[in-house]
Simulated scan of single mutants.
Amino acid sequence: MDHPATRHSVSVAGVILDGQGRALLVQRRDNGHWEAPGGILERDEDITTGLVREVREETGLIVEPLALTGVYKNMTRAVVALVFRCQPIGGHLTTNHESRAFRWADPQDVKTLANEAFAVRVLDAMHPNRPPAVRHHDGTHLLTHP
């Protein structure tokens, strides 16, 4: 039988790149952090549907996932995040109750704006020829040994 202490949440995030190699960061309204748009999958939702829904809710953009770029586990909160490189195929950037602002960020901007655990997701997605990364973190910093 499944014990609540052994359960994990699964989240998805979309790293949207523009034609200049910059990634879209969203400033979250709840905590002010800069991150790739995304969120927790609903229990009855498939991964792609959840990704498209979460990105649209936070940005107003409709995206098409191109590639899985990384799997990340928050060891403190037991959240596994699946991150995808995406291309926009419709919609318009629109702030809302979840997002305060948007910024197209180059790799240095990403490192400056986002904490290490979230910046690495975006940086990994900015390299199209790498296999998906597998990383662990504590919510802020990467862990070398989970």
Rank of each mutant, 00 (worst) to 15 (best):
N115P: 15
G60T: 07
H92K: 11
K111M: 12
R53M: 05
A119Y: 02
A67T: 08
R130C: 06
C86W: 09
P107V: 06
R53T: 07
N129H: 10
P131I: 08
E58G: 07
D138C: 04
V55G: 02
E98F: 15
Q87F: 00
E54S: 10
M75R: 14
Q108L: 15
P88S: 09
L51T: 07
T94Y: 01
V79I: 11
H97L: 12
M126P: 01
T59Q: 03
N115S: 08
C86E: 09
L68W: 03
V80H: 09
V110P: 02
P132V: 07
T48D: 03
F102A: 13
T59A: 05
I62M: 05
H141S: 15
T48F: 07
L113I: 02
T48N: 01
L61F: 10
T59V: 08
D46S: 09
A101K: 05
A78N: 14
E54W: 06
V134P: 00
L41V: 05
H127T: 14
Q108K: 15
R43Q: 05
T76H: 00
L61V: 04
W104P: 12
R85Q: 10
D44F: 11
Q108H: 13
M126Y: 09
M75T: 15
L82P: 06
G91E: 09
L113D: 07
A114N: 10
P37H: 06
F118W: 11
G139Q: 10
V120F: 07
I89P: 01
M126A: 12
F84E: 14
T94S: 15
L82F: 09
R85M: 04
V55A: 00
E116R: 00
D106L: 04
N74H: 12
Q108Y: 06
T59P: 00
G139C: 02
A133C: 04
G60D: 04
H127Q: 14
H141G: 09
H97G: 13
G70I: 03
E57G: 02
G60N: 05
D109V: 13
D109F: 04
T48S: 06
K73P: 06
M126T: 12
F102K: 13
F118D: 12
A114I: 05
G39S: 00
P65M: 03
L51A: 10
R56A: 04
L93Q: 02
T95E: 03
R85V: 08
V120H: 05
V122E: 13
